[in-house]
């Protein structure tokens, strides 16, 4: 296992334990996007590494001089929280409070509780790409060279606002923006093909004027190679869209190949069975 794979294994354990702990939340998409968030936060993104109070990373909401990440499909908050905690924004022990009363780790991410690492609330789908474009435009106005990353779901592509944003970005040369679409082919009510077929998403983004690339989002080597390439693709006049093929429930055999674990928590036996497939690498919280 490489270092990133090792971190990803721990993050997947965190996701399962968090969702099990409150018997609610969304494990499927979280497990599918784990590799991307680990690769972004532990290798790709330029973030402020200065430590502040309590030895945690000091977090500046403005993100001046930093690369930014926005999670548009906020329901996969477990992976976001785990990666932020493991990266050092707050105590991993706090993951145990997920979705519980008085927690900073709300069901869907929010700035409202002051959790370090979160810059926008998300959950109601379709809004994150617009926010990311705004943040990218601010970076340009401020003369910053940093990159803004956004992650959306493929089911989320059914929201109209996404296409308002998809149309705007190329027309306004927002080329410091990288939008990932988590193409796992599943949504709550079934496969995206059956619920409301997105058809060829990559072709659609391309037709709107984006530079489109594809990647296996559950192959860490392929992912990190692509991310290195992306650093050379930004700043060339076009926003970049990554059609990222993933498996919902990746890493846990009985959660894969189905939409059934989109928003269902494992019971005690299922948790045990799942954790047995994922080595504890950094210590459970």
């Amino acid at each position: 296992m490489t270092e990133l794979q090792s971190i990803a294994s721990q993050v997947r354990r965190d996701i399962l334990r968090m969702v099990h702990g409150c018997q609610s939340g969304h494990p499927g998409g979280s497990l599918g996007c784990t590799d991307l968030l680990v690769a972004l936060y532990f290798q790709q993104m330029k973030i402020n590494n200065r430590k502040g109070k309590g030895g945690y990373l000091s977090f500046n909401l403005d993100g001046k001089g930093e690369d930014l990440f926005f999670l548009s499909n906020g329901h996969i908050s477990p992976v976001f929280y785990s990666v932020l905690a493991r990266r050092g924004y707050f105590d991993v022990k706090e993951l145990a409070t997920f979705r519980k009363i008085n927690t900073r780790l709300q069901g869907h991410p929010t700035t409202h509780e002051g959790l370090p690492g979160i810059r926008i609330a998300s959950g109601s789908l379709g809004q994150g790409l617009s926010v990311s474009i705004g943040a990218a435009l601010a970076k340009k106005l401020n003369g910053e060279k940093n990159i803004v990353y956004c992650l959306m779901g493929d089911g989320e592509q059914q929201e109209g606002q996404v296409w308002e944003a998809v149309q705007f970005a190329p027309n306004n040369n927002v080329d410091n923006l990288v939008a990932f679409v988590d193409v796992n082919g599943q949504q709550i009510d079934g496969s995206t093909n059956k619920v409301n077929n997105n058809r060829d998403l990559g072709a659609k983004y391309k037709a709107f004027g984006w530079r489109v690339v594809t990647v296996d989002g559950n192959n860490m080597d392929e992912l990190t190679t692509l991310l290195r390439k992306i650093k050379r693709l930004v700043g060339k006049g076009q926003p970049i869209a990554v059609m990222m093929k993933t498996e919902m429930g990746q890493g846990v055999d009985f959660m894969m190949h189905s939409h059934k674990w989109h928003g269902v928590a494992p019971n005690d036996a299922q948790l045990e069975q799942a954790l047995a497939q994922l080595p504890e690498t950094l210590g459970d919280y």
Binding site: I120, S130, A138
Partner: peptide
């Protein structure tokens, strides 16, 4: 001119972009 953003007939995107602009210290 550099501080004006023509959003087109896309109000939802405009509100989202406005929220994003504030993250970089702008007052949209």
């Amino acid at each position: 001119p550099e501080r004006f953003i023509q959003c087109g007939i896309s109000e939802a995107n405009m509100i989202g972009m406005a929220a994003g602009l504030t993250i970089g210290g702008k007052i949209p």
